[in-house]
Design a binder for these strands. Structure first.
Lengths: 212, 212
DNA sequence: TTATTGTTTAACTATAGTGTCAAACTCTCT
DNA sequence: AGAGAGTTTGACACTATAGTTAAACAATAA
């Protein structure tokens, strides 16, 4: 039976395409490069996905689904916000580390200013609500309870996500400027999680008296 | 005299190229698209810059210079760190807002994993030192003086820069999720500066007693 | 074994993209 | 006005790329 072989080929093409589109963007990617990365002949791309556009859209839809999922962190509603925040950062960074292509491709699409991303966002937004909604609500609750200062939840989420994602889309530069990121990336990522939590939660300013 | 006209043409090509390379990356950019954006005929691109590669490298070198400069914030050495930090955020965000193409192009190069960025960084690094060095030293001094907690300066700089830059390279998404960013971008940017400073310096956790 | 179905391959077409060139144009100086 | 320098234009050549097609191949089931 050729099903497993075929499924394998299709999957290899798909994954290779994810990587190449992430690196080069929609227009920069070459079908030949994707074929090489998948280790197959170029016409097979067309056999499985018809056109470059369709292959891209399949990849993008997949990525967008992951992007939305990445915000779905299992949280306990009444847990202290410090724990919710720690859990979000931990889960989110792990997610992006595991799916670096996702973050890269979403950013590449943002850079290109394409409408595709906006359409997907609008559609998902209309049905599921903002991806960040849960966390924004948690921020509001924590502020009401007085555990954290009264901050703009949208700005706060943007700050947290920025701190968790940006280094993945600037890896060559980060590796250049930070020896640990170059020599032991996993250790760097773990240190990063801890740092982001501490700076976001406690800030830089020293405290004479600390709560929490 | 045709000099001013010519200089004008060359400058228009250059600026158009900056924009297109920022959006599409090196391989995704089309000479025709750059010509259209500059409002001139395509052969003129070759007249002034020979090849696409040379045009790209001219753009990249320019961008890289701006990138290095963007970290050069005039600081008073013995000012309180809160002021140094505020000044850096203010100056840095203004710089990126004014040169959005710079941030976009640097990120696009990071995504593509090209060696060009690494080479430039290594060269600049060897002669001028790390771009972030000044701020990292300020962070160390402030920690020694006890104004801020003892944090890893590299991680801290990464967090600050992430918070200041990431939204520029994710604008379509940010605009989708944040009404203010859509309706009054400048107001959003100013609010963002303030928010980044407050979160980074004070953190989210409420304080019973505050210093600084 | 042979027909059938689905997959892979090589050769091909058509188009889009880069780079070249010589003629036309423009400005300036004499 | 006419010569000369630099600039702009349209037409062209060549290459790279997307997409097609038909034949070869592999696996399965009769």
């Amino acid at each position: 039976m050729a099903d497993s072989e075929a499924a394998d080929t299709e999957a290899r093409i798909f994954e290779a395409a994810l990587r190449v589109f992430a690196r080069k963007g929609r227009d920069g990617a070459r079908m030949q490069e994707i074929a090489d990365e998948a280790g197959i002949h170029r016409p097979l791309l067309h056999y499985y996905f018809r056109t470059k556009q369709q292959l891209f859209e399949a990849c993008f839809t997949h990525m967008f689904g992951q992007f939305m999922e990445s915000f779905e962190v299992p949280t306990v509603e009444d847990a202290p916000f410090s724990e919710i925040l720690r859990g979000f950062i931990d889960h989110y960074v792990d997610n992006v580390r595991e799916h670096q292509d996702m973050a890269m491709m979403i950013v590449a699409e943002n850079l290109s200013g394409s409408t595709l991303l906006g359409e997907h966002l609008a559609r998902a937004f209309a049905t599921r609500g903002s991806p960040q909604q849960r966390m924004e609500e948690a921020i509001l609750r924590a502020a009401e309870k007085g555990e954290i200062r009264a901050v703009d939840p949208k700005q706060t989420m943007l700050t947290i996500v920025s701190a968790c994602v940006f280094f993945f889309v600037s890896l060559p530069t980060v590796r250049m400027l930070n020896p640990l990121a170059r020599e032991d990336f996993d250790a760097f990522v773990e240190a990063r999680k801890e740092h982001v939590f501490e700076v976001v939660y406690y800030g830089l300013a020293s405290r004479e008296v600390s709560d929490a």
